[in-house]
C-alpha cells in the first residue's frame, strides 16, 4: 500500500549532517556504495566503468557550494563567504511524495521507524518517484531497472550480528570528521534532536511541503580576516611574557 502510514509511531530515524564539519572527502559516498552494492536489494551498478562515459548508481553524493554574501567578493573582508561541502541522500520525508505517486506499492514508508524503502520485487522502474522527489534522492539502476535509494542501512542498524558501534548507517560509521549523526529525530531527548535544537538544524526546501526527517546543521558564523586583526600586530605584543622573558622584555625596552 503506497498511501503514507496512518498509524505512524513517534520514532523517526534519520541523519543529522553538520555542514560546519564536513570536509568533502567523499568517504561516505564510497562506503555507502560499497555496503549497499552487496546488501539490500540488487547491486548498485556502474555503466562503462572503464570507458569514456562513466556513470553509476549512488545513494549519497557530495556537492560543494560557494556561498558569497552581499559585497563578499573582497578578499580579506569576505566574512561569511566560504565553500560548503554538502552531502545529500534521502531525507526520509514524513510526507514523502515518492511514496504516494508509486503505482505498484513498491515504494513505502515504514510505520514503525519512518524509513522510506523500495520493495524491488514490485518496482516496475517507471521512474515517477524520482520525478516526484525534489531532492534527487532516488536513482534508477540501469542494470536492474529498479529504483534505488538510501535505506538508512536498514540491514545494519538492526543487525545483531554486528558490533554495537557498527549498528549505524555506513556513511555515519565511516565519516572521519564526525559530520554525520544517526538517531531518532522523533524523540526530543535524543542526542540528534538536542544537536538540532542547539545548532538550529533545518529542513531542505521546506516550501516543497515534504517535511524531511533528516536535518542539516548550518556552518557556524565566521569573522572576516579584517575584523580578526588585533589592535597591535601579534609579533609586537609582549603583554603575556612572564619570568625570565618578562625581565628580558623590560631590560631590552630600557636599552
Amino acid at each position: 500500500m503506497t498511501s503514507l502510514p496512518q498509524d505512524r509511531g513517534t520514532t523517526s530515524l534519520g541523519l543529522v549532517i553538520d555542514l560546519d564539519v564536513c570536509v568533502g572527502c567523499h568517504a561516505c559516498v564510497v562506503s555507502c556504495k560499497e555496503w549497499n552494492t552487496g546488501g539490500y536489494g540488487s547491486a548498485l551498478s556502474d555503466q562503462h566503468p572503464y570507458g569514456d562515459d562513466v556513470s553509476g548508481t549512488f545513494l549519497n553524493r557530495i556537492h560543494s557550494y560557494e556561498v558569497v554574501p552581499e559585497g563578499g567578493e573582497v578578499i580579506g573582508e569576505a566574512g561569511q563567504a566560504r565553500i560548503v561541502h554538502f552531502p545529500k541522500s534521502c531525507l526520509h520525508c514524513e510526507d514523502a511524495p515518492c511514496v504516494t505517486v508509486c503505482p505498484t506499492g513498491a515504494s513505502y514508508k515504514r510505520a514503525s521507524d519512518g524509513i522510506v524503502l523500495v520493495d524491488e520485487t514490485k518496482c516496475i522502474g517507471c521512474g515517477l518517484c524520482a520525478w516526484s522527489c525534489a531532492y534527487g534522492a532516488r536513482e534508477m539502476d540501469l542494470a536492474a531497472g529498479v529504483m534505488k535509494k538510501c535505506t538508512l542501512c536498514v540491514d545494519r542498524i538492526y543487525n545483531e550480528a554486528l558490533q554495537e558501534e557498527d549498528r549505524v548507517p555506513s556513511c555515519v560509521r565511516t565519516c572521519p570528521a564526525n559530520a554525520r549523526h544517526f538517531g531518532d529525530l522523533g524523540d526530543p531527548r535524543s542526542e540528534v534532536s538536542i544537536m538540532v535544537a542547539e545548532r538550529g538544524g533545518y529542513d531542505l526546501m521546506p516550501e516543497q511541503g515534504t517535511r524531511p526527517t533528516n536535518k542539516y546543521l548550518p556552518p557556524r558564523p565566521r569573522i572576516s580576516l579584517a575584523d580578526q586583526q588585533p589592535a597591535m600586530p601579534l609579533a609586537e605584543n609582549t603583554e603575556g611574557a612572564r619570568g625570565f622573558f618578562a625581565w628580558l622584555d623590560k631590560t631590552l625596552d630600557r636599552i
Binding site: 560543494s64 556561498v67 534508477m140 533545518y202
Partner: peptide
C-alpha cells in the same frame, strides 16, 4: 538552506560526468 549566508553557487559537482 545556505541562503542566510549569501548567494549559493555550485562550486564542484559530486562527479565529473552525468548521472541518472
Amino acid at each position: 538552506g545556505l541562503g542566510g549566508i549569501g548567494r549559493v553557487r555550485l562550486f564542484e559537482r559530486p562527479h565529473t560526468l552525468d548521472n541518472y
